[in-house]
Each structure stands twice: as C-alpha cells, then as structure tokens.
Amino acid sequence: MSAKVKLATVWLGGCSGCHMSFLDLDERLIELAARVEFCLSPLVDTKFKDFPEVDVTLVEGAVANVEHVEMLHTIRARSKLVIAFGDCAVSGNITAMRNNFTVDEVMNRAYRETCAVVNGVPVGDDIVPKLVPKVKPLHELVKIDHYLQGCPPSADRIWELVTALLDGRAPKLERRFG
C-alpha cells in the first residue's frame, strides 16, 4: 500500500469557524482518516516541535501578526500544496476590517477604551505577537494552490475540495465569496 497523503490544517487570523465547518464533515472524517495522515491541526492532539513536511495544508485565517507571517512562510516551504481555507485566508474578510484603522487605534479600542479593561495594552514580544500594520490575505505573501471561499466554507465544499485533491481531479466548486 502506498503511503498515506500527509495533511495539515492551520489556524492563523480567523475565528476557527472554518475548522468548525471541517468538523461538520461528521462521519466523513472517518473516511478521511482512512485516506490521510493527519499530521498537524488544532483539531488533533499531535505535537510537533517544527512544522512537518506534508502534502497538503489547509490554512484558515488571514495574516494578522508577525507569528502568522513566519508560520505561513514555513508552511509554504514544507507543504506541496497550500490551500487558502475560507474567506479570511482568501480575501482578509472580517480580520482585515481593522485595516481601515492604524494599529494604535485598534489596540486602544481593544485594550483601553472597553469597559472590561484590566491590564491595558499587552506588552512584551514573547507574550503576544505584534500585529502587522495591515492584515493581508495569504496570496499576498506566498503562492497559493487552491482557494476555498466561504465564511465558513460548508462541509460539502471542503469535502469536494479535499476528495478532488486526493483523487487527483479538478474540484467542482462555485467560487462565491461570503
């Protein structure tokens, strides 16, 4: 038997909704598990010191902080195919709505002007990664092989893309944002 396809899913600047939709694959997850090796994902309990070499990575979320930038470049270097998974990854979507403001304005709004302020703006580079000045969709930083729109993409659309990739055929997907 040939080696299983190595799959990873990653969560950058998004709400995790795309991953929730992935879980909505329900019993199809069992079928998927038979065909792929789940290398790394917020949904599975495997720990890696470094990002592993994989065949396919689904990346949820936009690039919003310096950690995302570094991570995305690592993902690109170690994945054969990188999929922009959901609208935030494809277009910036909700995550990029802060781009109409400066980082200072955003930080003030979140950590000073709210009623629940306790510690104010977080400090220290090691604790919270710094925000990049403008949130960007993945393809503005690295080459993307497939785009899966939707906020979130439905389980059926995820299934269509993933199975098409596994079967080596072109996915049949309506390319609608939102």
Partner: peptide, 20 residues
Amino acid sequence: QDLATHLGVDHVRVPYRHPR
C-alpha cells in the same frame, strides 16, 4: 458578488486598498 462568481474570480490579484 454574482458577477464575480460568474467571471470566475476566486481571489483578488491586486492589493486591497482598504479606504476609509
């Protein structure tokens, strides 16, 4: 949105401007 879908736009190749 419908026309973007019809034209096969799956991502935007020019940088977003994010005007206020």
